[in-house]
Design a protein around this nucleic acid. Sequence first.
DNA 1: ATGTCC
Length: 478
Amino acid sequence: MQKNLQFKGHYVHHGKNHHECELEHGKVHVFANDDVFGSFEAGVYTMADNNLRIPRNQYFSYTPDAHIGVGTCIGTTAVWRMSDGFVSPSIVGSDIGCGMRVHLTPYHSSELSHKDTLKKLVDAIGRFVPTNEITNTNYSDIDILEVVRYGLSGLPEKYRSDQQWLSHVEAANFPYDHAYLEKLPPIIRKYAQGQLGSLGGGNHFIELQRLEIPQDKKELAKSWGMFDGQLIVMIHSGSRAWGAMVGKEHNKVIKAAMDSWGISNPDPALIYAPITSEEGKAYLNLMYSALNFAVANRHMIAFGVQEAFREALGEDIKLPVLYDLMHNYALKEFHRGQPMLVHRKGTTRALPPGHFLNVPAYKETGHPALIPGSMGTASYIMAGRAEGAKNFYSICHGAGRLRSRKATKALVSVEEFQRSMKVGLEDEILVNHDSLESILDECPQAYKDVDAIIDSVVGAELADVVAKCLPLAVIKGR
DNA sequence: ATGTCC
């Protein structure tokens, strides 16, 4: 048996980068290479054990980017049967529907790599896509109720920007019982109306990136419309105040219900309800409203980016969407012959070629799985493998935070951050902030090494790298 | 993550 300094219990080595750790209340599957596995903090196992106290869990795992979160680690895949299982706002995460989107451009990065051009683009994107908490994007012709009811299909015709706008997304619209919308505080609609198409803060970003495609993936990449050196736009955002409020409200309601049911957990922040309970149903229905908002929000961010390209470059170009998917949600999926509720908190679905859940456009190849790195480091576009079935087709969602925002600010200097962004050098990564101080907690030193995370996933045969995406410029909120 | 805190 291999040694893991952090995990004291018994574990089975299942295959390369796949460990099954026995805890008091069940098992957690960990997908990580030896270095990453050895670096896991002890607290993630306590957290797993608390989660495994939730009755009738069918599967629980960590991707290599796993780290401590509220109630449940970010990097968790947790599965219950629909018939007798549980739904947990804590295992969805606070930013419901948080996810990734990539748009392709017709440009080779060398055409736009001049600093003045990039600066112009960054500046324009900053104006067309607000980032602040209090935003007013002024899409007054969009009915926010239509958006949360029907997702992308609730957007007016004029915002349907390209041929692929509805077909190249993980989910354009989640149907649910709209009567539950009446239970939300009315003020939420006002916030949402002003926030649609805005980026938000924290780890959310828009990046201009350059593709680097491995030799053996050139053909697949070409079939996805990608080429070596291509300039692409990567977007990371979620459901803004709408999802935050849905989560907050139901945390309170379900917490009270747990008390009345006599359910308790060592971690008071871990909240869960039977799927068939009224509280569980209410959360699931409104979670879908947040997923609808999130995908429409990313679509509208991309709309703003396209307007910015048009203004900055003076060309009427199209930026077709490659794909849009989420890494914070609970989805009903059929696995092992029955309907299951698959929670992914900071994990990304990567369906393999031929899988029936793929959208038609990617049925043959599997869909692109979009994995962001930290600021100043590479992001990745992956493709799922059939072997991913062992983890319910979940892979990592990014680099994964290494240290808290507070600890990062105490440890890393602005100068170190500037060096990471190559400030002053020829290949400086442009940022939409005059000073990096206000976003110091987002520096690469705050995150794990994304290359080690990707190596873990590839080694575990969950997915392959189709393209490495190198950052040229980044737009962040604060 | 979040109109970031009752």
